[in-house]
Design a binder for these strands. Structure first.
Length: 559
DNA sequence: CGACTTTGACCAGCGC
DNA sequence: GCGCTGGTCAAAGTCG
């Protein structure tokens, strides 16, 4: 779990960065380095320990006044800061001995440093010291209490201790939350890695590096024995759109799609009868996974780089808009289907649902969408069957994209497990009610306008282009996020970078997931081209754009 | 004329 | 068993 530990490393500087400044302000400048050195090695509770090292704790029955002379104003070496006794009394007793058993009562800087160095070896992730950053007044009282009565000092110090203790508790709680978050991230990574390993192993395929022309993200998998048989025993690299995981193996007809009644059995019932894949995937493929993309668009259909042929249209229950059925025509016998339907509640929203696996090479523009949908489907199937309704996946995605604004909805409800990438959501809103049993997962999207759908191809292409950068943990420098505050931007980029690093060891998974994440994050990037027909992926006169669902809308009630 | 869309018919699954 | 619904087929129509 080297990757997960990498995440923990990121936390360490956070815990340290809060500590020093205002503490240092309490002391003459010539002691800064000395103090800095000591407070860099806190053990929990940080406050107590830090203050203890600043002012050596007393014996149980003795008031500690032996400050380093360099801490005191000239000519005041013998001055005793009365208020300090109560300030340290409660906890200094507990800190008379350091964690390693070494007496922390020191009379020289050298001894103090030595002790600090030793305690520093047992450093924990702890952000407790940040509470000192706001409490300069107490520091002032420690140094500038000339002529103030001891009673006043005691009162003041007591109140400060109380405040500090409250803050300490709060910081401890936050520290605990951070630790739990780290644990959760680690768990999510483990789960995904195990799923990926299981998939690769059981499919019997080898995930290899694709040819350089197509980029690192392309996955080529050797065909299974039965497929080899169909292809004359040759090993044919196959670039696939893995929506249903096993569907590519089961749905490919032996004849062309024009061969009617070929019975390649796309119905879910057929899938139930013929599970031809590993045991782990049996449950998953009892249902056929689907990936649905919701996008607000006036455009008739998402241009995703593939060729589609409309083969049917029906009125669906509960929606006045007809549902159009398309199949991929980029290769004969390609089993990929998609459904296009406008949202009943808001007809500016276009819902495109993909199903099946391409059995042919795809153009780069199509690969972008394929990578996105396949990664979504893979996460859906890899997790939804082993955790309740994709909760693991939602946790994972939430962890990946904490400041996202729109939603991905995972639904494992019958008959098909479906993950919906919602590119229509405004920040912190849930525009439409969702059926129970669905899990909403935040996704970043900044294109709630009609251009969202039209820009999708470009977004996905851009995503592919960004993948190498993404994997190289440089995405935050390359992506533009004008809609985000600087802090949010950094948080998002850092989080995504960390997550990417965590999965970088799995090339195939990295490619797919990185495409999904970067594509959506990159949706805020301005694109030189406008509209939805600018991807140049319409090699024939008939493609997806040739079909106009808006015309279909005019045919409401035809069926 | 070929490719594609339209659209009524057909089939299967599911609930009552 | 029947009706409803989703999904698909294929003949007819349309278009370039």
């Amino acid at each position: 779990m080297a990757k997960a530990s990498g995440l923990s490393i990121d936390l360490d500087p956070i815990s340290f960065s809060f500590h020093t400044p205002t503490v240092l302000n309490s002391f003459p400048q010539d002691t800064t380095s000395d103090i800095n050195h000591r407070i860099m090695f806190p053990t929990t509770p940080c406050l107590t320990n830090t203050l203890a090292t600043m002012s050596p704790p007393p014996p149980v029955d003795q008031f500690p006044v032996k400050l380093n002379p360099s801490f005191l104003p000239p000519g005041d070496n013998k001055r005793r800061v009365v208020g300090e006794r109560d300030f340290f009394a409660e906890k200094s007793d507990r800190k008379l001995v350091d964690d390693d058993g070494v007496d922390s009562m020191h009379t020289s800087d050298a001894d103090i440093k030595g002790s600090a160095d030793r305690t520093g070896l047992e450093l924990n992730v702890d952000i407790g010291l940040n509470l000192l950053t706001t409490n300069t007044s107490s520091d002032q009282s420690m140094v500038d209490n000339n002529g103030i009565s001891s009673g006043m000092e005691d009162k003041k110090a007591n109140s400060e201790v109380a405040v500090l203790q409250v803050k300490l508790e709060r910081v401890k709680a936050e520290n605990q939350r951070l630790k739990e978050m780290l644990i959760q991230v680690t768990k999510n990574y483990n789960a995904i890695k195990m799923h990926m390993g299981s998939l690769v192993q059981h499919r019997g395929g080898k995930v290899e590096k694709a040819d350089e022309d197509q980029g690192e993200d392309r996955m080529i998998v050797e065909e299974k024995p039965e497929q080899k048989k169909q292809n004359g025993g040759q090993i044919v690299p196959k670039q696939f759109m893995d929506l249903g995981l096993a569907a590519a193996d089961t749905d490919e007809p032996s004849s062309s799609s024009s061969d009617s009644k070929s019975h390649h059995e796309d119905s879910p019932g057929a899938d139930n009868k013929v599970p031809r894949f590993n045991v782990d995937q049996t449950e998953a493929t009892m249902k056929k996974a689907r990936v649905s993309v919701r996008a607000r668009s006036e455009a008739p259909m998402i241009t995703d780089g593939c060729q589609w042929r409309k083969y049917g249209q029906k009125m669906a229950k509960g929606n006045p808009c007809p549902r159009a059925y398309y199949r991929c025509t980029m290769a004969t016998g390609c089993p990929v289907r998609k459904q296009v339907q406008r949202c009943a509640e808001d007809r500016t929203i276009l819902i495109t649902t993909y199903e099946g696996n391409h059995n042919h090479p795809l153009p780069p523009a199509a690969m972008a969408m394929v990578s996105t949908t396949s990664s979504a489907a893979r996460m859906l199937l890899s997790g939804s069957m082993s955790s309740a309704d994709g909760l693991m996946n939602s946790n994972f995605l939430t962890t990946l994209l904490p400041c996202s604004s729109s939603m991905a909805t995972i639904s494992a409800s019958a008959p098909f497990p479906t993950i919906t990438l919602d590119l229509t959501q405004a920040p912190n809103s849930s525009q439409f009610p969702r059926p129970p049993g669905q899990v909403q997962v935040p996704f970043p999207s900044n294109s709630p306008t009609a251009s969202a759908t039209a820009l999708l191809p470009q977004i996905f292409v851009q995503a592919l282009n960004n993948q190498s950068k993404f994997s190289g943990l440089q995405m935050s420098q390359d992506l533009e996020q004008p809609q985000l505050q600087q802090g949010q931007e950094n948080t998002l980029a850092d989080t995504v970078n960390a997550a990417t690093a965590a999965i970088a060891a799995d090339p195939s998974f990295t490619a797919a997931l990185a495409a999904a994440i970067t594509s959506i994050i990159g949706s805020s990037q301005p694109h030189p081209s406008n509209g939805h027909n600018s991807n140049g992926m319409n090699p024939t006169k008939s493609n997806g754009n040739a079909t106009n669902p808006s015309n279909s809308d005019d045919n409401v009630g035809q069926r």
